[in-house]
Design a protein around this nucleic acid. Structure first.
Length: 345
DNA sequence: TCTGGGGTCCTAGGACCC
DNA sequence: TCTGGGGTCCTAGGACCC
């Protein structure tokens, strides 16, 4: 019987896999990708690491200098976003050749909506086509909604196919910790544990009003909803409309000079405005982010009196927002972000 | 582990208005 | 006048995700 299914396609080790296609001689060696590829650069972290590097305790997010210490024999490569963008586009094009609705979810993921009586065969065909046409491996999860499909693709790794539906949810998920759910991270999991809610089953059986008291009227009941295996099942094939945009820079050496800080903020504001204009968007709000040494992050923001595309207005506003900070300690990061006018729905 | 960059959404509290 | 209640907008921060 044909029915609607949600599939989640997750490219395995996407960035590392793209790099290994370009550098086949590195296959089987520990490879770490991040920053400019210079492992002595401080304040730079790995974007990804191959399984061989992971065996040495190097993961995505590991500082490169730590990676070098743990795995001196690793090959370090710079990140190359345009290359990943291009590889991602090739994969999405392959997916779109199938009779499915495709919702792109970042570089290395997509949700698919499909009507079929045999989702496993469809998934196998998709995986084989991606492999043949792009030489990239992917895992595919099958579910009744995005949440189930997303968790299923995680269970399918590497290069496998897994089905997780409402029928099998409880037996698969009930004994897992709450942070196994998509949308519950370390912080929330710890708070839930403090309430005696350690497993998915315990969260599913919790009182929604009690959860609302601790986590707010939306989040509290939503966590229980996740634990019951529910989730969004609508596939949106139209391109995502960004809510905003930002740029930020972490400095190798802290900034202390006020003029230098102001210059950087002005540069970021100008860049962000150019980005907005290139995207054909208007700016409604300007925010400035400062991370002070050692690691204290603060933001200030202001709504513009009217939407603008004018770099001078945005820069002037960003500098005025900057003036509201106490610049009383060294600065390790500066960022400027903007909100966009949203088109009428 | 001395901790990137780019996003999204939610919450809480204050200002302001009726 | 000696203090209510609700609605909306704005800001700062937090959590999560890739």
């Amino acid at each position: 019987m044909s029915r609607d299914w949600i599939l989640h396609v997750d490219l395995d080790q996407f960035i590392a896999a793209v790099e290994l296609l370009r550098h086949p001689e590195l296959r089987g060696r520990p490879v770490v990708v991040g920053g400019t590829g210079d492992p002595t650069q401080p304040r730079t972290v790995a974007a990804t690491a191959t399984y061989e590097a992971r065996a040495h305790g190097v993961h995505s997010g590991t500082p490169l200098r730590t990676a070098l210490r743990r795995c001196p024999g690793a090959v370090f490569l710079p990140t190359d976003p345009p290359a990943y963008e291009a590889a991602s586009a090739r994969v999405m094009a392959v997916l779109r050749e199938f009779p499915v609705r495709v919702e792109v979810w970042g570089w290395d993921e997509a949700f698919l909506g499909a009507i079929t009586d045999d989702p496993e065969t469809l998934a196998t065909d998709l995986r084989d086509a991606v492999r043949t046409r792009t030489r990239l491996e992917c895992s595919i999860g099958i579910g009744d909604n995005k949440h189930q499909a997303k968790l299923a693709s995680g269970l399918a790794k590497p290069a496998g196919i897994h089905r997780l539906t409402t029928d099998t949810w409880a037996e698969t998920m009930n004994d897992r910790p709450t942070d196994a759910l998509w949308g519950i991270g370390a912080k929330t999991s710890r708070k839930l544990a403090a309430l005696g809610l350690h497993t998915v089953a315990q969260l599913a059986a919790a009182d929604p009003a009690e959860l609302a008291r601790h986590f707010g009227p939306t989040n509290g009941p939503w966590y229980r909803y996740l634990a019951l295996g529910k989730g969004e099942a609508e596939i949106v094939t139209t391109p995502w409309i960004a809510r905003g945009h930002s740029r930020e820079t972490t400095f190798t050496d802290d900034l202390t000079d006020r003029d230098a800080i102001a210059r950087h903020v002005a540069d970021l504001a100008d860049q962000v405005t150019q980005d907005a204009t290139a995207a054909g968007r208007e700016i409604t709000r300007v925010s400035v982010k400062i991370r002070f040494s050692p690691f204290l992050t603060r933001t200030r923001q202001t709504k513009l009196p009217a939407p603008t595309t004018d770099p001078a207005t945005v820069t002037r506003t960003a500098l005025a927002v900057l003036d509201r900070f106490d610049l009383d300690r060294p600065v390790r990061l500066l960022g400027v972000g903007v909100d966009y006018t949203m088109p009428d729905p």
